[in-house]
Structures are given as structure tokens and as C-alpha cells.
Design a binder for these strands. Sequence first.
DNA 1: AAGGTATATAAGCATATGATTATATATGAA
DNA 2: TTCATATATAATCATATGCTTATATACCTT
Lengths: 108, 108
Amino acid sequence: MLDWEQLAECHKALGDKTRLHILSLLKVEELCVCEIVEVLQITQPAVSQHMRKLKTAKLVRERRSGQWVFYSLDGSIYPFFESIVQTFPDVQHEIEELKKMGLRVLCN
Amino acid sequence: MLDWEQLAECHKALGDKTRLHILSLLKVEELCVCEIVEVLQITQPAVSQHMRKLKTAKLVRERRSGQWVFYSLDGSIYPFFESIVQTFPDVQHEIEELKKMGLRVLCN
DNA sequence: AAGGTATATAAGCATATGATTATATATGAA
DNA sequence: TTCATATATAATCATATGCTTATATACCTT
């Protein structure tokens, strides 16, 4: 079951604008670190550190593919996560932008 | 509508064990500051500061009654708040304890 | 094996957070 | 008004957070 420690950690992970932005992006689709860097315009280590927090909080899962690490939404242990995610702003257009600039990483 | 700033603030407020505990208590019933102090065994200013954060994040509302200020759950602007609250541990027994010790403030 | 790209970790720094003690403010009672 | 109780705010401090730059690790290609 969920204890306070876990619950607090989950919400701490959600308590940052940058991470909310990242989760909003992952709501659209799975992305790798370098793509997130491109959208957010912050440094790669900053993104990696955010991803670690999200992963520790079990809000995302990772999948390695070649040199890339792709992250996607998880949060399955939090019954409420789904409804929180639904309230995130739509950022589809930011990913479209990536595609237009030819910066999407397309591989499996 | 909810913007990232608000969303992050709400989750920041939820990202602390002590505040989760307070919200769990308020889920049972409306309480005043001194009652919360009694249950949590932290100083009164600490509780007051937590209440301010929760109020700023619009997760609780306050009601003054005489020298007491009673807080109760709100969160109505967050459609997901209800489902989060449902996952909080049950702390009814802690309030029962207060009553046994004659420390409930009973007034309207 | 050597070089290139993607990601992670380490170290450093400025700011935020959560607690405490001390003090101010607000309400009620004598 | 004076005193007691409840709450809020201020000042302080230790620790946490989020970012940066520098460096290490992992994987792919040649």
C-alpha cells in the first residue's frame, strides 16, 4: 500500500514546473532525454536529474534503445495519477515543433 | 483554468509528510490549530506555517470562531484532489485519542 | 581499439524549505 | 483595562532543491 513517505515523494516530484512540463510532454508520447532538452532549453544534466526524480517517484519508466533512453508515463501505483495527468496543459504543439525542426529521434 | 504555477504549488503543498498528515486529519473532520499541534507534537508556529501553505495552495479553508481558527479541506479548484484524498491513510483513531484526553475544542 | 553521441553522475552554488525560539496580534474573560 | 489563550509573523538555522559546468559511463560506428 501507499505510505506517507511514498505519497509525499510522488507529490514532491509533481511540485516543480519543469517536471510538470516534462510529464505533459510524455503524456503526448514517449521521449528521450535529448528531445526533452531540446523542448525545455535547459541543460542535459538538468533533464537527467529531473528524470531520476520522476523515476524514483515511479511516475515514469525508462526504456533503453541503443544510445537513447526513452521515458514514458507510468504512475500505475498511484490510483489518482491518471486524473492529475488529465489536468495538464496540452503541449502537443511543442512536439510538432520538434518534428518540424527534424529533431525527433526515430528509432526502436 | 489551472496553470503550471498553480498546479506545481498545489503539489508542492502535498509534497510534505507533515502536511499530508494534517490533510488526513482534516479528512476526518474540521480541526483548529491547537488540536493539530496536539496530534502532531510539533510547535504551534510550525503548524501555522503549514496551514498558510495549504491555504495559499487552496487546499484548505479557514473559519474563525472566537479565539480559534478552524481549518477544513477544500481543494475544489483541483478536480483530482478528491481522489488523492481518498488514498490518505485513515487517522480517525488519532482524533479519538484527542477526545479521550479531553483535548477536543468543542465550540461553534 | 578509437572516436562520436547520448546519458548519468559529481561538485559547486544560490535559493527554497521546514523546523525552532521569540515576539506580535486577536479574541474572550475578569 | 488587564490577563490568559489562540494564532500569526519574524528571525534564525540546518538541510533540500534546482541549476550550472566538468567529468564519467554506455552504446554505436568505423
